[in-house]
Design a protein around this nucleic acid. Structure first.
Lengths: 146, 146
DNA sequence: TTGTCTGCAAAACATTTGCATACTG
DNA sequence: CAGTATGCAAATGTTTTGCAGACAA
């Protein structure tokens, strides 16, 4: 498993150091779209010398190489996602969780529809859709409270 | 014109102070999706006592009331848009400009398609699509350079 | 006059940078 | 050995907060 990640990093042309494999593995195995700090808090006990700077360096490197995507769904910090297939994100304003909304076929079509709206000559490289609202659990809670 | 904005703010239940009208007017008349600092730099010469804090307060107030929308298209700062009709944003990675992509009918449909993908019980309140790439001008420049 | 709004100064964070040390091929 | 990666400490830049004075109903 981890070996897979090692190869995946190497294939991207990035030297798969212990730290980098650890970060990528964490992202893969905890698809909660973590922030830098969440990654650091999780890995720090396992790799006591690990520094936040390395997490920043690593995630930026991964993002620039297209290995992970940066999710801009918060007002004050970035989140990261190792799943780069077409999917959109939903953030519940009550519990704060970020959910993946996946339906690859439909989303490919939606993305194509969006890109079709661009003026002539524009070239799209990346597209991201975010939805904010209440998740079903929080909708339930709100109902039973009132 | 400015009077319109005064009423528009008042209708939202917000007291239309001089500063607030100035900020809203600026957003309306300069649809470049400015950052806090851009608004401050533009208005500061006209209202010498104006402070950044007030711009922050005002834009947050407006955003919470739905009078403006927050655009999360940069990595390190927020942008604001007084146009709340369905439209998406395109950021050119070379010149840095943010363009509006508008086609209200199509976009209403696209948004509906996205929301249809949400799991049962989820309730959507806000949706935002961003595209990154190169604008036609920068594509041209790149071509003629090579 | 009473509550709200403004704006200064300081604080709080997230992120970046400089640089010395530690790896790794 | 040479070049790259790591991580500490300090800097940067955006946004928030505390608070006192100004303003408006």
């Amino acid at each position: 498993m981890s070996d897979n990640y090692f190869s995946k990093i190497a294939e991207t042309g990035i030297r798969p150091s212990v730290q980098r494999v650890a970060v990528y593995t964490y992202l893969r195995e905890h698809p909660v779209h973590p922030t830098v700090d969440m990654v650091y808090s999780a890995l720090s006990p396992v790799y006591p010398t690990l520094s936040r700077t390395t997490i920043y360096n690593t995630l930026k490197l991964f993002a620039d190489s297209g290995l992970v995507q940066v999710i801009r769904i918060e007002d004050d910090r970035l989140r990261y996602d190792a799943d780069t297939s077409p999917h959109l994100h939903f953030k519940c304003r009550k519990c704060g969780n970020v959910f993946d909304i996946t339906d690859e076929e439909t989303l490919r079509k939606i993305n194509a529809d969006c890109i079709a709206l661009l003026p002539a000559g524009f070239s799209a490289e990346r597209i991201q859709t975010n939805i904010w609202g209440l998740c079903s659990t929080c909708v339930q809670k709100q109902k039973s409270a009132s």
